[in-house]
Each structure stands twice: as structure tokens, then as C-alpha cells.
Amino acid sequence: MQPYPVVPRIPEDQPFIVRPSLRKRAVVLGGFVLALLAFLGCVLGLGAIGSENGLALLVVFLVIAIFFVGLVGLQVWLLATGGPVLAVGPAGLWIKTRPSRGQAIWLPWEAIGMISRRRWSFEKMLCVAPRDPRAEQKLGAFTAFDSMVTQAAFGTGFTATLNFADRSEQEILQAVAYFAGGRVPLT
């Protein structure tokens, strides 16, 4: 049995709630895709100069462009529409157990071993490491699969975005420090 409550979505009645920002994520990932497509367009354009297959190369480019735009659009939608990623209150915090969709877990401050801030590529994350390793067990097969990358990169499956959130990184860290009240080491 799971030692901490797990719910399908973070409750909205908490004093401080952090939601993902669709706009911020779309701007960064969209810029990356546009740069990649511009490069690919230049390469295919150079190949089309003086070629009889110019139309075929244009079709290939359009198919690749639609695929990448659709893939990035799906990723942004999955990350930004799953509800809040973090909620903090005087007794503890709620944090998503899956990076893309779904469930969240309640951890009282006494059950948290450490909270740290880490960076991976463009993403800055708030990482919550529970004292009890059982907190990360029995959360379901999809959660185990989804959190493998965050577990490997950050040492915990409980992470929340800091820079792709509807609140500033500083505001989030201040709220966590305030509500934790010195009960949890913040690094």
C-alpha cells in the first residue's frame, strides 16, 4: 500500500499553486523547431538548386515540418494541460508524480528528505526527495516509465518545473522556503 495519498490531480485549494505555462514552453520549443526546420530547409533548398527533383524535395520538407510541428505540439500540450505541477501549504506539498500527465502525491514536510534546484538542458527543476523510498513505489506502470528520465537525471521522480511555470522561479523558491519553515533542507 502507498504510504502517502495519491490523487489524479493536485487539489486547487492550496495556499500556493504552480501551474505549467503553455506560452513559455511553446515559445522555447517552437523556436527550437523553427531553427531546426530553417536549417533543414536551407539544406534541402541547396539540394534542389539545379535539380529535377525540386518538387519532391519540397514535399519531403513539408512532411518533415508537419511531423515535427505535430510532435512538439503534442509534447507541449501533454506538459501544459495536466493541471498544477506543485502546490505548497503549511503542512506539506503536493507534487506531480508524472512529468507529462496525471497523478500527484501528498508529502508532509516531515516526509521530505531534501528539496533542491537542478538544471537539465533548458529546464530548471524543483526536485523533492522523500525520506521514505516507498513514496516512489507502487505509483503505477505508466508513472514508473514516465519518471525514469527524471529519476536518472535528478535522483528523484518528484520534480516540478521552475522556469516553464506560471510563476517566477524566485517566487516558487520563496514560497517553498516560507511554508517549509526550516523543516526541510533547501539546496
Rank of each mutant, 00 (worst) to 15 (best):
I64N: 06
A65E: 00
A65D: 00
F68E: 12
F68S: 10
V69M: 02
G70C: 05
L71E: 08
L71I: 09
L71G: 06
L71Q: 11
L71R: 13
G73P: 10
G73I: 07
G73Q: 02
G73E: 01
Q75C: 11
Q75G: 11
V76A: 01
W77R: 15
L79W: 10
L79S: 07
A80V: 07
G82R: 10
V85N: 10
A87W: 05
A87F: 03
A87L: 03
A87K: 04
A87S: 10
A87Y: 03
A87M: 02
V88S: 06
P90A: 14
A91P: 02
A91G: 03
G92T: 08
L93M: 15
W94D: 05
W94P: 09
W94S: 08
I95T: 13
K96G: 13
T97G: 14
R98H: 10
R98F: 02
P99K: 02
P99R: 11
S100W: 13
S100A: 13
R101E: 05
G102N: 02
Q103T: 08
Q103A: 14
A104Q: 10
A104G: 13
A104M: 12
A104I: 11
I105K: 03
I105N: 00
I105E: 00
W106R: 14
L107P: 01
L107S: 06
P108R: 15
P108T: 14
W109H: 08
W109I: 06
E110S: 15
I112F: 08
M114C: 07
I115S: 00
I115D: 00
I115E: 00
S116K: 14
S116Q: 11
S116G: 15
S116A: 10
R117E: 13
R118P: 05
R118Y: 05
R118L: 13
W120T: 11
S121M: 15
F122L: 15
F122N: 12
E123A: 14
E123K: 08
K124V: 10
V128E: 00
V128I: 11
V128C: 03
A129W: 12
A129I: 13
P130N: 01
P130R: 13
R131M: 07
R134I: 06
R134V: 09
A135Y: 04
E136V: 03
Q137A: 15
K138W: 10
G140Q: 07
G140R: 10
G140C: 06
F142K: 11
A144P: 02
A144F: 02
F145L: 15
F145Q: 05
D146G: 04
T150V: 10
Q151I: 02
F154E: 00
G155W: 09
T156M: 06
G157M: 01
F158D: 00
F158Q: 01
A160C: 12
A160F: 07
N163S: 04
F164N: 02
F164L: 11
A165G: 01
A165Q: 06
A165N: 07
D166L: 11
R167F: 09
S168W: 11
S168F: 08
S168T: 15
E169L: 08
E169S: 14
Q170H: 12
E171H: 09
E171M: 09
I172R: 07
L173I: 14
L173H: 04
L173E: 08
Q174P: 04
A175P: 04
A175V: 07
A177V: 08
A177Q: 15
Y178M: 09
Y178E: 12
Y178A: 12
F179N: 03
F179I: 03
G182M: 12
V184I: 06
P185D: 00
P185I: 01
L186R: 13
T187Q: 15
T187W: 01
